[in-house]
Write a protein that binds this DNA or RNA. Structure first.
Lengths: 170, 170
DNA sequence: AGAAGTAGACAACCTGGTTGTCGAAAAAGG
DNA sequence: CCTTTTTCGACAACCAGGTTGTCTACTTCT
């Protein structure tokens, strides 16, 4: 509890570095909450990156190379992701009849269930934010953020943060 | 150029998952810009995590254990960070005269220069955002984000994203 | 003095990425 | 039709930034 914070609340709203911390912190809070709730609802091994990868698969990136392109990562990394998803039973692969090189990926029922649960929880959390801010305010915030994001592909090579409680070694 | 995007702009502002992507994307855009500019200004090996670690060091976390507590990571990870900073010449360590176990860390002139440059660039980017949004708007946005962050310590175990151009293997 | 706690080092490991190389299959083009 | 080029996926080695667990040296508390 006494972990002193790198950013100790209510800062004077001015420094660019703090703005970055605010953005990162908000993201983390949102995502951590979703991951925790997902674990509680029977998906203890779901990681943020899985969600995004499965979205891309659902949207048509049904093989390693395409998934890599879609996620702006290498096909090798994409293949690893697919392997992880397969291990956990969220997707299956099979040989493509059209192209003997391809291994075609698609979601299992379990995978679809994860996506439904994930989307629902995301929306719940967003609804809580909306309640705190007011509907118009949140929409405005999203619009403003969208301006900064522009049309740049969002790279989510953000890795390991599962928000496990940090118990310092022994 | 044809990397299809996971989030293709102007989304309808409603889904919680997209909100997460907006936050992450904004953060990445901001930080990538700073890292790039830092490289251009003579700090080609500066990583986002360095900035944050050095801030904590400057704020008094002048040994591995303290730095770990400050950053909410293990002391081992903190020691690795200190090693990386030392390698790059941003900090030096010396034995503490008061406590023979401790290795006291402090910033070098080069490290201070990095921090000055980093802060300046961060502020420049923020100023550009402010210009686009209007001063009041950005302040409001920051305030709203601060509400979501609350007083939770911001964990920045976000790792490897340096936004290097993704050239797919051969 | 002795017990308990803390600082840091070392080793092994994990995750989500990265190169680079390769063989097999498909597509393009003479 | 045969050759060249491209693409897909696999394998191996590596890296960054974390994690545990174990261990020794030093401090502090009683």
């Amino acid at each position: 509890m006494s972990t002193c914070k790198i950013y100790t609340g209510r800062m004077p709203t001015g420094s660019g570095a703090d703005l970055a911390l605010l953005l990162l912190g908000s993201y983390r809070n949102l995502v951590d909450e979703v991951v925790d709730e997902l674990a509680r609802r029977g998906f203890p091994d779901a990681r943020p990156s899985h969600e995004y990868a499965m979205r891309a698969i659902q949207a048509g990136a049904d093989n390693a190379s395409a998934l890599g392109r879609s996620l702006a990562i290498t096909k090798q990394a994409a293949a690893k992701t697919i392997a992880a998803l397969t291990e956990r039973g969220y997707v299956t692969t099979e040989a493509s009849p059209l192209d003997a090189r391809r291994r075609q990926v698609h979601l299992t029922e379990h995978g679809l269930a994860l996506m439904r649960a994930g989307a629902a929880i995301f929306d719940e959390v967003r609804a809580r934010w909306e309640q705190r801010l007011g509907a118009g305010e949140l929409a405005r915030l999203e619009e403003q953020l969208a301006q900064f994001v522009g049309d740049s592909p969002i790279r989510l090579d953000a890795p390991g943060w599962v928000a496990r409680d940090q118990a310092d070694g022994h």
